[in-house]
């Protein structure tokens, strides 16, 4: 039986070509959908191109050193810059990093290395994921209630704390993933030589997982640098240079928000220039995270 079938195929007319004719309804439908997918996918890239184009054209037009050295202009004033807002943003992001990096990375050690299957680890992991979707404005509301009311004033510290709430889950979850990637053999070898768990973590796990951990750190920094909602009523804004950490503090994102609704051409131009600077800061950290995190093997 089987031999005769084989011989028919071998000697008979060529079987159906694997190539479908485009006229066939099924193939036609597939081809049309493919075309549609191309159009939709390319359309999805349009907003980014448009945003970057506007930033370069509108923001680039105002680009000068004054932006970095001068204070924001009032009402009808011409010129001006946003040096204080750049300083404010960097200071508050630094405060956020100082708070969330140690807590996030140490908690990640617990989750990845010490008790990965404990109840506490499962809860922390779950709440970390919940926090990634936590609305940023609520971080502001929380810090307003917990810090601003207690300190009696808007401040860079409060702004930094609210940003740290948003940075924490990114650092925690990426650091945990990075440490899980460290090969088991390396840890076992160190343990076998009499290392304590702590020594294994400091001498093997953390150095080996460092690129991945840094990726999370950079992503966290990139995420919070652009945040504005949590700063609205924690850091507020200031038209002057930063005098101390316990005073209202300017930030690039709040400057953009405030200036975008002003009826003055000068302020609108500054808002675009500030957007360009802000996006550049965010992109630098974003690209750093990609370079550091690129797989090496």
């Amino acid at each position: 039986m089987s031999t005769s079938v084989t011989s028919t195929v071998a000697t008979g007319p060529r079987p159906h070509s694997l190539q479908r004719s485009v006229g066939e309804p099924r193939a036609l439908r597939s081809a049309l959908l493919t075309g549609g997918a191309w159009v939709v996918a390319l359309a999805a890239a349009v907003p980014l191109v448009s945003v970057l184009y506007m930033l370069i054209v509108k923001g680039g037009a105002r680009f000068s050193t004054e932006l970095f050295t001068e204070l924001p202009p009032a009402g009808f004033e011409m010129g001006g810059g946003f040096g204080n807002a750049i300083v404010g943003t960097l200071v508050m992001v630094a405060i956020a990093a100082l708070i969330s990096l140690p807590i996030g990375i140490l908690a990640a050690v617990f989750l990845a290395e010490l008790k990965p299957n404990s109840k506490l680890a499962a809860t922390t992991r779950f709440l970390g994921k919940v926090l990634t979707g936590f609305p940023s404005i609520l971080a502001g509301v929380f810090v307003y209630a917990a810090v601003v009311l207690a300190m009696g004033s808007y401040s860079a510290i409060a702004g930094g704390i609210s940003l740290s709430v948003l940075m924490l889950p990114t650092v925690l979850l990426t650091a945990e993933e990075a440490m899980k990637m460290v090969p088991r053999k390396m840890k076992d070898a160190a343990l076998g030589m009499g290392c304590t768990r702590t020594q294994v973590i400091w001498k093997v796990v953390l150095p080996t997982g460092l690129p991945g951990i840094l990726t999370g750190v950079m992503l966290g920094i990139a995420r919070v640098s652009g945040e504005s909602a949590p700063l609205l009523f924690t850091a507020l804004f200031s038209n002057y240079w930063l005098q101390g950490l316990r005073e209202p503090t300017a930030s690039l994102s709040i400057l953009i928000y405030n200036f975008s609704s002003m009826p003055f051409e000068n302020q609108i131009e500054l808002a675009w220039a500030a957007s360009l600077v802000l996006v550049l800061i965010v992109l630098v950290f974003n690209i750093l995270s990609r370079i550091i995190g690129r797989p090496k093997f």
Binding site: G226, S260, L278
Partner: peptide, 9 residues
Amino acid sequence: AIPSVVFGL
């Protein structure tokens, strides 16, 4: 990566 305010603007 584009901040929310920049999208607003």
